[in-house]
Write a protein that binds this DNA or RNA. Structure first.
Lengths: 225, 225
DNA sequence: GTCTATAGGCTGATAGAC
DNA sequence: GTCTATCAGCCTATAGAC
């Protein structure tokens, strides 16, 4: 981030501070996803980040606030992507396929630990979630609902319930990515070894399942180019 | 619980001991599902069960062994139900619909906390699971795979991958039931209030989604009565 | 900004009376 | 079998030197 030599103290050290913050966010994301909020001592995060324990309190104000910072930043990024898709004017079936691919891409590349963290959080009933964070899942829900509802209105989809459809779609994707580590552990240990399914294969499976499962009964053809 | 007078000590008290055990299993099931293994102090389990803290060590040998006893007993019961269904000679699409209903029934009546506990466990990669327990999910997987594979072989289903189909089916159901508490909390707090979806509605939604989503392309009719 | 040292709370497990 | 009392360990957070 910085191209010239800097003093070792004073405002010039901002780069190191940012690096410390980022290291804590990264290490915390991995560890919280793996073991849950209560399962991770701050010492473990500090060690993994290569910084001192006390930096968590200095930069974030405590373990809980570090946790919230991680969840919030990731949610914001994902919401932006999903809401952009929801506004696409293309046919709903196409948009839905792209949404599934986008979730897969998010869950494997950009935010590889988000599914686990979000799922854990939601399972506790949102114990650690601020009121400010609690409506973020609702925005994702809203975006998916709008896509499905438009598909139904256009006659591309059967008259399915958008909320239930959202739950089945997002649920199976989040489940897949949150449990990937377990599958690798169990399937790889079997003799003969079973290869754990690849994310790309699952994304395609879900796209096809939804395409067939939601398609309106009588009209296979698209009504718009 | 007691119909005749019994001595206050000696073998005649076995019935009370069983009641203590059961109370601990029940209380532990609810609390572990809600807050996860690390999130529950043994004192909370004892209090909810109405027995003394030390009884956990006396009857189960520690917190961890109580936890394993709960997970193992529930898994065994569910595996029996699912494997019985997998051996049904009826057409695969029918059996699959019944499997979905059975999961819904299990998750709402007989083992209302199992989805949360299993999902939490699987998300940690099986940290708390004994080697003896670790193949129980594999038996459920095997049963669902056999149903799907038979549907494909009979020409009732598209040539879908049985493993991926199992993951999408079980994943979306487990997700739904594990996150029910969160939905109630978030949806019920909104104005205007949104009614959280009922389990029965979701079961029907999943049955229809899979029926349409897996059906072989050209032949809608059943090939066996 | 970063570190060390430590305070103070909570946890799981047990010893021993009954 | 059940209870009370207690212990040792680990946790988060902070004070204060640099």
């Amino acid at each position: 981030m910085r191209s010239v030599a800097l003093p070792t103290t004073g405002p010039g050290r901002r780069r190191d501070a940012a690096a410390t913050r980022d290291a804590l966010l990264t290490a915390g994301g991995e560890l919280f996803a793996e073991r849950g909020y209560d399962g991770v001592p701050v010492a473990a995060i500090a060690q993994k980040a290569g910084v001192n324990k006390a930096m968590i309190n200095y930069h974030f104000g405590g373990k809980r606030k570090l946790y919230l910072a991680i969840v919030s930043a990731t949610f914001t990024d994902i919401i932006a992507r999903v809401e952009a898709l929801a506004e696409s004017p293309r046919p709903a079936p196409e948009v839905l396929r792209e949404l599934i691919a986008a979730v897969g891409e998010m869950a494997t590349r950009r935010h590889p630990h988000f599914c686990s963290m979000m799922l854990r959080e939601v399972m506790t009933g949102g114990k650690h979630l601020d009121p400010a964070l609690i409506d973020k899942p609702a925005r994702i829900l809203g975006a998916v609902q709008r896509i499905v509802a438009r598909g139904v209105a256009d006659g591309d989809f059967r008259p399915v319930d958008p909320l239930l459809t959202h739950l089945s779609l997002v649920g199976s994707l989040v489940f897949f990515f949150a449990t990937a580590r377990f599958r690798e552990r169990v399937l790889a240990a079997r003799r003969p070894r079973i290869e754990p399914p690849a994310a790309a294969a699952y994304v395609k499976h879900m796209q096809d399942l939804l395409t067939h499962g939601l398609a309106a009964e009588r009209r296979a053809g698209r009504r718009r180019a």
